[in-house]
Amino acid sequence: MTLAMAPTGIVNDVPIEWFLLLGAMLFALGAVGVVVRRNPVTVFMCIELMLNAVNLTFLTFARYQNGWGLKYENAQQAAMNGQMMVIFVMAVAAAEVAVGLGIIMAIFRARREVDVDDLSTLRN
């Protein structure tokens, strides 16, 4: 059985490309921030922004699958897969923030200042 049922939910009349474009713009903003900013904490925030843009895209695809000709069961599985991906991204982001901020703290303690341009001790 393909998806012949009428789509339900609040998003019926918002086209998919709007969501995807928003996700793409947020991702691009985050990427720009990662390249441009010098404060490592702000760089971290930009990475979080990128992760969230990806989350939005995952959820959009979880919700919009009509038109791919998926069988009903497969469509339900696809919907769940998208949501589970978001949960795992959140878990990874939490772990990453804990470790990353710990590293920033350790660097700050050792050098009394943090700046991504000056942190080049490993480079000869």
């Binding site: 009428a6 339900t8 998919i16 793409a24 991702f27 720009v32 919009y64 038109g67």
Partner: peptide, 27 residues
């Protein structure tokens, strides 16, 4: 910022075109 952002957006825009026909599924 401008160069990099425009590049990333362009790549994503290429990806959006093929899936623009999709509609909300009957979940």
């Amino acid at each position: 910022g401008t160069v990099f952002g425009a590049l990333v957006l362009f790549i994503f825009a290429l990806g959006i075109r093929p899936v623009a026909e999709m509609k909300p599924g009957a979940v």
